[in-house]
Design a protein around this nucleic acid. Sequence first.
DNA 1: TGATCTTCCTAATCTATGTTGTGGAACATG
DNA 2: CATGTTCCACAACATAGATTAGGAAGATCA
Lengths: 250, 250
Amino acid sequence: MPDPRKSALEPMLRKLEYGAFLNGEDRDALLSLPHMNKTVEAHTYILREGDKPTHACLMLSGLTYRHKIVANGARQIVSLHMAGDLVDLQNALLGTADHHVQALTRSDVAFIPLEAIKNIAFDRPAIGQAMWYDTLVDGSIFREWIANVGRRDARTRLAHLFCEYALRMEAAGLGDHNEWELPMTQEVLADCTGLTPVHVNRMLKSLEQDGLISRTRRSVTVRDWKALAAAGDFQSAYLHLPAHKLALTQ
Amino acid sequence: MPDPRKSALEPMLRKLEYGAFLNGEDRDALLSLPHMNKTVEAHTYILREGDKPTHACLMLSGLTYRHKIVANGARQIVSLHMAGDLVDLQNALLGTADHHVQALTRSDVAFIPLEAIKNIAFDRPAIGQAMWYDTLVDGSIFREWIANVGRRDARTRLAHLFCEYALRMEAAGLGDHNEWELPMTQEVLADCTGLTPVHVNRMLKSLEQDGLISRTRRSVTVRDWKALAAAGDFQSAYLHLPAHKLALTQ
DNA sequence: TGATCTTCCTAATCTATGTTGTGGAACATG
DNA sequence: CATGTTCCACAACATAGATTAGGAAGATCA
């Protein structure tokens, strides 16, 4: 058994602790989970629709996303994932993957055998509750995306996506909500928001001209968080982040 | 303790058994859960965004839906629920509701104390796994809705919604996938699909004229299931229904 | 240092869907 | 049965966002 004190699985703890109090034994048990580390290059598929996964995938660094392809060939990204996210707990327990998981940037991930996850979740109620909670937060974000894509106009959608991304990055300790790396092409932004890259470009310009953000090739600076949140009809409650993670943005 | 053999909670078992094998004791424990039955009229709010629910709500009959209101006042429905669905397990465990739950038609529901749900889930691993699975299936349906609303055109969206609804109703024993009650106004359909009622009307006419469906005021007959599924870019895998529930539609 | 590729930007044009409005059918209410 | 209300159907018009396309600006690599 690996020494839990220097486990690579450390990033997993943060989010799980949102959902339940984990005592020392719980934490050790989590950090001692068997796993296999791997670095995946940008654009690599981690899982394809129809696969029957045997491992869950924990993000250690980088960004990944889940997506679906519809009949006309268009792609819809349904979620983004960063360090600490247990990406395909979803696909894992359901047996057959109903969507693709792909690396957006070069990423370090840890593959954890499903059996080990199930065992730990049912042996240790606090961990089980934490994982369940985590999947519920995922669900909450999905609901918000349905509303975002279904009922908000293009500019609002994009601003909303930015606010969500900024807060999640900050909560994960990966940046400041007012300034962050955005390693996405405009095509990726379009596939997150159900728009075309051309129109994303127009809306980016609009947000920039109105002084809400400024940007360089691969990073964004928020010039006026309140205005951006207003433009994006963004209220953070659905992220279910603990209060102390939100202090700075209130 | 009520006699589990004639519990009103019976409809809960079907879906939970998709996710795990439940033995006699598990089933008795579920059916003996404390609960309070209630009939809610159409349009009644069962839960509002911001509420802190103390009970989960099991649907016994009728239809309910969850929705969000965005800044411009538009409504986006994010899911539909029918007999057997544990509607707000989502809101319940998350502490604060991030969306509204409202009755679409007059419905019978059972309110089950949250504490009792948590206890049974962690005392009985099979039940815990079944409930977790159920919330994951919810998540899978959310993902499909994001893709539906984000990347499919209006006609396809509507056909997709119909296919999903038909299959879920049939799986719940509430109808035949080729003929069902549709107690929804075109405005409700619009709010499910991110369209306007006027355009829903156009698309309904289109589906009807092309011989895929026919309809009366509050019911739909599928004239050609295969064609409707094709028009809706519908593949049922994401519903994660057991094979025997799908036999008729293959 | 140039050749090649990707991404970004911009403009012109088009179209799917939204908006507004009207009349009538169906249903609910008393 | 009379009346009010909700919902549906249809039409005329408006527009947000899609489509297509070309060139500029960076990146990557020989």
